[in-house]
């Protein structure tokens, strides 16, 4: 993973639950089967109501999004324990979600899978930026820069090395908690 990324952002509000991230009808896809993993990416955030989110996150017929950074309000990822949620975002090419707060299981699944970095923001960024704005996320400094203004993000602390390693299994092997393959 590069230490700094620049990308257009996709902005959503509070309580984006797992049904909006990946609607239940697509849970028949099994994430460990590679072609189904890719398909999950094509459905990322397709459950957002069209009236509130006229801009599609992943264009029809595509599997990748142009938005590598998602900005959200409170309680991102609430609802189900489905790991398909962080996986759909990761499979679509998202590298980080910057939210005012996260629901517990979603946050944990981001860490366990290593799919993406769930950053807590200090400000309510979803009111300050809009979809399509270009932002730069610095993973070394834990900052997000947009419109020439730099916002500090809360450091990920003890879960950071787990995501850096690519998830809980890689981390557990690196640190000797479980035997190497």
């Amino acid at each position: 993973m590069s230490k700094v990324i620049t990308s257009p952002v996709y902005v959503c509000a509070d309580n984006i639950d797992t049904d909006q991230i990946i609607p239940a009808q697509y849970l028949t896809l099994v994430p460990t089967i590679p072609e189904e993993y890719e398909k999950l990416g094509s459905y990322a955030l397709i459950g957002l109501p069209d009236a509130l989110y006229p801009e599609r996150f992943v264009q029809e017929g595509q599997t990748q999004t142009q938005y590598k950074i998602v900005i959200a309000g409170r309680n991102f990822g609430c609802g189900s324990s489905r790991e398909h949620a962080p996986i759909a975002l990761g499979a679509a090419g998202v590298e980080a979600v910057v939210a005012e707060s996260f629901a517990r299981i979603f946050f944990r699944n981001c860490v366990a899978t290593g799919e993406l970095y769930p950053y807590d923001s200090n400000e309510r960024l979803c009111d300050l930026v809009k979809t399509g704005d270009i932002a730069t996320l610095d993973f070394e400094q834990d900052t997000l820069t947009v419109h020439g203004k730099t916002y500090s993000l809360k450091p990920l602390g003890e879960v950071r090395p787990v995501i850096d390693a690519g998830g809980i299994f890689n981390y557990a092997r690196q640190t000797g908690m479980i035997a190497s393959k």
Binding site: S81, R82, E83, I105, R108, N109, A112, I168, F169, I178
Partner: peptide
């Protein structure tokens, strides 16, 4: 359990909570 409503078993004085596939795969092995 790999389901968020696993917390229902808390009614039985049990620590019960939902997890994702990766954590569940870890438990299956360890």
């Amino acid at each position: 359990g790999t389901d968020s409503h696993t917390c229902m078993a808390g009614a039985f004085n049990q620590f019960a909570t939902g997890i994702g596939n990766t954590d569940a795969g870890f438990i299956l092995g360890t």
